[in-house]
Amino acid sequence: EVYKVKIKIERVLPNGEKVEEEITIEVEGMSEEELLALARELAAEPGVRIKEIEIEKLPP
């Protein structure tokens, strides 16, 4: 199964400015739980906050 994972994050820059970013990846052969863990890892940097995680199962 192939999933499209869209992660919206908010990053706080050293000057205090907040910037929103969106990361989209396609992943194959992982469960939804593994995808959530991967998304959290991607956003685990200091000053980064996850705003939204969207997981979509793509048709075969």
Score class of each variant (00 low, 15 high):
residue 30 M to A: 15
residue 35 L to D: 00
residue 39 A to P: 01
residue 46 P to F: 09
residue 36 L to W: 13
residue 12 V to R: 07
residue 50 I to N: 00
residue 11 R to C: 03
residue 28 E to P: 10
residue 9 I to S: 01
residue 34 E to D: 10
residue 46 P to G: 06
residue 43 A to H: 06
residue 20 E to T: 05
residue 7 I to Y: 03
residue 37 A to M: 13
residue 50 I to W: 01
residue 18 K to L: 12
residue 26 E to T: 08
residue 30 M to C: 15
residue 23 I to S: 02
residue 25 I to L: 08
residue 9 I to G: 00
residue 57 K to F: 06
residue 40 R to Q: 10
residue 32 E to R: 08
residue 49 R to V: 14
residue 48 V to H: 02
residue 28 E to R: 02
residue 25 I to A: 04
residue 58 L to P: 03
residue 46 P to V: 07
residue 35 L to F: 04
residue 44 A to E: 07
residue 15 N to L: 03
residue 39 A to D: 01
residue 5 V to C: 12
residue 50 I to L: 09
residue 58 L to N: 05
residue 1 E to G: 15
residue 36 L to K: 08
residue 48 V to A: 04
residue 12 V to E: 12
residue 42 L to Y: 15
residue 37 A to Q: 12
residue 5 V to N: 00
residue 60 P to F: 02
residue 32 E to D: 09
residue 43 A to F: 09
residue 19 V to Y: 06
residue 9 I to T: 06
residue 44 A to D: 11
residue 57 K to E: 04
residue 11 R to F: 03
residue 36 L to E: 08
residue 36 L to Y: 10
residue 57 K to G: 08
residue 57 K to W: 09
residue 3 Y to F: 12
residue 47 G to M: 02
residue 20 E to G: 04
residue 56 E to G: 04
residue 15 N to S: 11
residue 7 I to M: 08
residue 8 K to S: 07
residue 16 G to I: 01
residue 11 R to N: 01
residue 22 E to M: 08
residue 45 E to F: 15
residue 14 P to K: 06
residue 49 R to Y: 13
residue 52 E to M: 06
residue 60 P to C: 12
residue 60 P to H: 14
residue 34 E to V: 05
residue 3 Y to N: 01
residue 52 E to K: 06
residue 14 P to Q: 07
residue 2 V to L: 15
residue 47 G to P: 01
residue 59 P to M: 12
residue 30 M to K: 11
residue 32 E to W: 14
residue 56 E to Q: 11
residue 60 P to D: 10
residue 16 G to Q: 04
residue 42 L to I: 09
residue 34 E to L: 13
residue 13 L to I: 04
residue 21 E to D: 12
residue 44 A to H: 08
residue 28 E to Q: 11
residue 28 E to A: 07
residue 47 G to T: 06
residue 20 E to V: 04
residue 3 Y to I: 06
residue 59 P to T: 14
residue 4 K to Q: 13
residue 34 E to W: 13
residue 20 E to Q: 13
residue 25 I to V: 05
residue 13 L to R: 09
residue 39 A to C: 10
residue 15 N to V: 01
residue 27 V to F: 15
residue 23 I to V: 10
residue 20 E to I: 05
residue 52 E to R: 07
residue 5 V to H: 00
residue 28 E to T: 14
residue 45 E to R: 07
residue 28 E to W: 12
residue 16 G to R: 01
residue 11 R to Y: 03
residue 15 N to M: 04
residue 53 I to C: 02
residue 26 E to H: 05
residue 42 L to A: 11
residue 27 V to L: 10
residue 48 V to Q: 02
residue 53 I to Y: 03
residue 50 I to R: 00
residue 23 I to W: 09
residue 41 E to Q: 11
residue 17 E to T: 12
residue 25 I to Y: 14
residue 30 M to V: 15
residue 23 I to P: 00
residue 55 I to F: 14
residue 29 G to H: 10
residue 3 Y to C: 03
residue 34 E to Q: 11
residue 50 I to V: 09
residue 51 K to E: 05
residue 35 L to W: 05
residue 10 E to D: 13
residue 28 E to M: 12
residue 38 L to S: 04
residue 25 I to S: 03
residue 53 I to T: 01
residue 4 K to N: 04
residue 1 E to K: 08
residue 6 K to P: 00
residue 50 I to P: 00
residue 29 G to T: 09
residue 25 I to R: 11
residue 55 I to N: 00
residue 24 T to G: 03
residue 29 G to E: 10
residue 40 R to C: 04
residue 12 V to S: 15
residue 56 E to Y: 06
residue 57 K to D: 02
residue 2 V to E: 04
residue 60 P to L: 05
residue 8 K to L: 11
residue 36 L to V: 09
residue 39 A to M: 11
residue 47 G to H: 04
residue 60 P to E: 05
residue 37 A to Y: 12
residue 20 E to D: 14
residue 47 G to N: 12
residue 58 L to D: 02
residue 40 R to Y: 15
residue 7 I to F: 15
residue 21 E to C: 09
residue 45 E to A: 06
residue 34 E to G: 11
residue 31 S to Q: 09
residue 41 E to R: 14
residue 40 R to L: 10
residue 31 S to Y: 11
residue 50 I to G: 00
residue 17 E to Q: 13
residue 39 A to K: 03
residue 51 K to A: 05
residue 40 R to S: 09
residue 16 G to S: 03
residue 42 L to H: 08
residue 27 V to Q: 04
residue 45 E to S: 09
residue 54 E to G: 10
residue 59 P to D: 10
residue 33 E to V: 15
residue 20 E to N: 10
residue 10 E to M: 02
residue 52 E to I: 10
residue 34 E to M: 13
residue 58 L to T: 06
residue 18 K to G: 05
residue 35 L to C: 12
residue 2 V to D: 02
residue 31 S to L: 08
residue 17 E to V: 07
residue 4 K to G: 02
residue 42 L to Q: 05
residue 49 R to W: 13
residue 51 K to N: 04
residue 38 L to M: 13
residue 45 E to H: 09
residue 10 E to H: 02
residue 23 I to F: 12
residue 11 R to T: 03
residue 37 A to S: 10
residue 53 I to M: 04
residue 30 M to T: 13
residue 35 L to P: 02
residue 24 T to H: 14
residue 32 E to L: 10
residue 30 M to G: 13
residue 54 E to K: 10
residue 27 V to I: 09
residue 38 L to V: 10
residue 6 K to S: 12
residue 48 V to K: 01
residue 7 I to C: 02
residue 6 K to H: 10
residue 4 K to S: 07
residue 14 P to N: 10
residue 58 L to W: 09
residue 1 E to I: 14
residue 57 K to Q: 06
residue 30 M to R: 14
residue 7 I to L: 08
residue 29 G to S: 13
residue 60 P to R: 00
residue 23 I to K: 06
residue 60 P to W: 02
residue 36 L to R: 05
residue 25 I to F: 14
residue 42 L to E: 01
residue 6 K to F: 08
residue 3 Y to T: 03
residue 27 V to N: 03
residue 16 G to C: 04
residue 48 V to P: 00
residue 43 A to E: 09
residue 12 V to C: 06
residue 58 L to S: 07
residue 37 A to R: 13
residue 2 V to K: 15
residue 47 G to F: 05
residue 12 V to G: 04
residue 21 E to G: 07
residue 31 S to I: 08
residue 11 R to M: 03
residue 55 I to Y: 05
residue 37 A to I: 11
residue 12 V to D: 14
residue 40 R to E: 10
residue 47 G to D: 14
residue 22 E to H: 09
residue 49 R to E: 15
residue 51 K to H: 04
residue 21 E to S: 07
residue 54 E to L: 15
residue 13 L to G: 07
residue 29 G to R: 09
residue 56 E to V: 09
residue 55 I to H: 01
residue 9 I to C: 01
residue 36 L to Q: 10
residue 4 K to T: 09
residue 17 E to W: 05
residue 16 G to Y: 03
residue 26 E to K: 15
residue 10 E to K: 01
residue 58 L to I: 07
residue 18 K to E: 11
residue 35 L to M: 14
residue 20 E to M: 05
residue 48 V to M: 03
residue 59 P to C: 15
residue 24 T to Q: 04
residue 59 P to A: 14
residue 10 E to G: 01
residue 6 K to M: 14
residue 55 I to G: 00
residue 20 E to P: 04
residue 32 E to I: 12
residue 1 E to W: 09
residue 60 P to S: 08
residue 47 G to K: 01
residue 27 V to T: 07
residue 9 I to M: 12
residue 20 E to K: 02
residue 17 E to N: 14
residue 18 K to S: 14
residue 51 K to C: 11
residue 53 I to N: 00
residue 1 E to D: 14
residue 55 I to P: 00
residue 1 E to H: 13
residue 19 V to H: 09
residue 13 L to S: 06
residue 51 K to R: 09
residue 39 A to Q: 04
residue 37 A to L: 10
residue 39 A to V: 14
residue 44 A to V: 10
residue 48 V to S: 04
residue 13 L to W: 08
residue 42 L to G: 01
residue 15 N to D: 10
residue 31 S to P: 07
residue 16 G to A: 02
residue 51 K to F: 08
residue 3 Y to K: 02
residue 18 K to V: 08
residue 14 P to C: 06
residue 17 E to H: 12
residue 30 M to P: 06
residue 24 T to L: 12
residue 3 Y to W: 13
residue 40 R to V: 11
residue 24 T to S: 09
residue 10 E to I: 04
residue 3 Y to L: 07
residue 29 G to C: 07
residue 29 G to K: 11
residue 24 T to C: 09
residue 29 G to L: 06
residue 9 I to V: 07
residue 19 V to S: 06
residue 54 E to F: 13
residue 55 I to Q: 01
residue 48 V to E: 02
residue 20 E to H: 07
residue 41 E to S: 12
residue 21 E to F: 03
residue 56 E to A: 11
residue 5 V to Y: 03
residue 32 E to K: 12
residue 37 A to F: 15
residue 45 E to Y: 06
residue 22 E to S: 07
residue 24 T to P: 01
residue 4 K to A: 06
residue 57 K to A: 04
residue 53 I to D: 00
residue 47 G to Q: 04
residue 21 E to Y: 08
residue 32 E to G: 06
residue 17 E to F: 12
residue 40 R to A: 08
residue 56 E to C: 04
residue 55 I to M: 05
residue 41 E to W: 03
residue 31 S to H: 06
residue 37 A to E: 08
residue 42 L to F: 03
residue 29 G to N: 12
residue 1 E to V: 12
residue 11 R to Q: 02
residue 19 V to N: 05
residue 25 I to E: 01
residue 16 G to N: 03
residue 1 E to C: 15
residue 36 L to M: 15
residue 6 K to N: 06
residue 34 E to H: 05
residue 9 I to P: 00
residue 20 E to Y: 10
residue 51 K to Y: 10
residue 38 L to D: 01
residue 8 K to M: 06
residue 42 L to V: 14
residue 20 E to L: 06
residue 22 E to F: 10
residue 42 L to S: 04
residue 31 S to R: 07
residue 16 G to P: 00
residue 41 E to K: 12
residue 17 E to L: 11
residue 46 P to R: 14
residue 9 I to E: 00
residue 49 R to I: 10
